[in-house]
């Protein structure tokens, strides 16, 4: 079971990589989910439609997954309810301020050997590990 899980993780990663590569080699665009989603706050921007189509396609990808693989998506949201609005605010604010999230910095930026993305990726992983450690210690 464990091996199977790592194999699906690696294969899933390859699919994500291809998705990002398709956008970059085809249209010259960096797949930066936070900035594409953030662009939806500007409905009169000329780039609004492709951003909306892309974001909706990601949701559709999750919807067709069970049909293709015969497995349901599992989403464990076990933290107290008030964690989710706080976390969402911080993720939204932080990704815009740091111009990227796991996709833009972690998958595209690192692949371009961008120093900014390498530093950002190491920073948010470290920050998340420390936060999770502190949170686990406090919440027991």
């Amino acid at each position: 079971m464990a091996n199977f899980s790592f194999l699906s993780a690696f294969s899933g990663g390859i699919i994500i990589g291809f998705a990002a590569l398709l956008m970059f080699l085809g249209l010259g665009r960096i797949t930066e989910i936070s900035s594409i989603a953030g662009g939806l706050l500007k409905p009169f921007d000329e780039q609004f439609s492709w951003r909306l189509i892309f974001i909706l396609s990601i949701v559709v990808g999750g919807a067709v997954y069970p049909l293709l693989w015969g497995r349901e998506i599992v989403v464990d949201v076990n933290a107290p309810w008030f964690i989710y609005p706080i976390a969402g605010l911080l993720v939204g604010f932080g990704t815009r301020m740091g111009s990227g999230c796991t996709s833009g910095h972690g998958i595209c930026g690192v692949a371009r050997f961008s120093t900014r993305s390498l530093v950002a990726t190491m920073t948010f992983i470290l920050s998340a590990m420390v936060t999770h450690g502190l949170y686990s210690a406090i919440s027991g």
Partner: peptide
């Protein structure tokens, strides 16, 4: 901004374990 933004994003990511892409897929 890059560093402070990454730290803030990391705090949110570490609290809930959710980043923007997976959040969209999880809507399902």
């Amino acid at each position: 901004d890059l560093i402070v933004g990454a730290v803030i994003f990391g705090i949110g990511w570490g609290l809930a374990g959710i980043c923007p892409g997976p959040a969209l897929v999880a809507l399902n």
